[in-house]
Computed example of a mutant assay.
Amino acid sequence: MTIEFRADGAPLPLDLKHLIVAGWTGRDADAIAHHIEELAALGVPAPSATPLYYRVSSPLLTTAPLIEAVGGASSGEVEPLIVEANGKRYLGLASDHTDRALEAHSVAMSKQVCAKPCAAELWNWDDIADRVEEIELESWIEEDGAWVPYQSGTIASIRPLADLIEGSRIGALSADGPVAMLCGTFGAKGGVRPAARFRMEMRDPKTGRTIRHDYSTTTLPEVA
């Protein structure tokens, strides 16, 4: 399945071969503990190690403005997206949309059952590599008809992306073709919770460039 990306405005269609979701990637031990506690409140077991690299089906990554999820317990998380393709690296924006009910039983399975929305725009890695940790990420959810701040932080809050790239073995996997990895997130203001609409943004404070993406979630009936 081809994703119609754009790299700095130029078309970059990619037939993604591998998709990775990096989890538990907070750099600060207290922040990791907070996120573990936050998810523990939803019944999610603590990880066996940090970080972890979950392999999921590559067609889950999508630029579509609408996704579908079974039941009403799924929610998004804003994350930086690393893409390796044709010997080049790019930085993008994605949401690790996850089924929170299933997450209480298996984090790996919960990652697999939801689409991973992403923005179509990518930035060439070489253009921002010297200041990548200054890049700002923010998300909002729609509640009662209004957009409510949900997450905010910089990439400096996450483990160095170079470490995640090495730990995930993106380089080796890219021998098969394009690879993408979602790189982790920040705590949610007011706690993790579902919303029908999710908005996210990535900003480069040096240049003022932004990448934005909004998506909606249609809830499918949960039939037993």
Rank of each mutant, 00 (worst) to 15 (best):
Y53C: 12
A108D: 09
V83P: 00
L122T: 06
G177D: 02
P45T: 09
A162F: 07
G76W: 07
A104L: 08
G187K: 06
V44L: 01
R159I: 11
P51K: 12
A156W: 11
R55N: 12
E77T: 06
Y150C: 07
S74P: 03
L16V: 15
G184M: 02
S58V: 02
R197H: 12
D204P: 00
S152R: 15
A31P: 03
T50M: 06
G43N: 09
A119Q: 14
W123A: 02
N124Y: 02
R6Q: 13
L93K: 07
H213T: 11
V107F: 12
L14V: 13
A188I: 08
L19H: 04
A146R: 13
G167E: 05
R203K: 15
W123T: 02
L60P: 07
R6W: 08
M181K: 05
S75A: 11
R100C: 06
R100G: 05
T25D: 02
R131Y: 03
S139V: 15
W24H: 07
Y90N: 01
R89A: 03
M202W: 10
L164T: 01
A46M: 11
A69P: 00
W24R: 03
L93C: 00
A22T: 00
A69G: 12
P160H: 06
H34S: 13
A46E: 08
E142T: 05
G187A: 13
P205N: 05
T63Y: 14
T219A: 14
T154G: 10
L137Q: 08
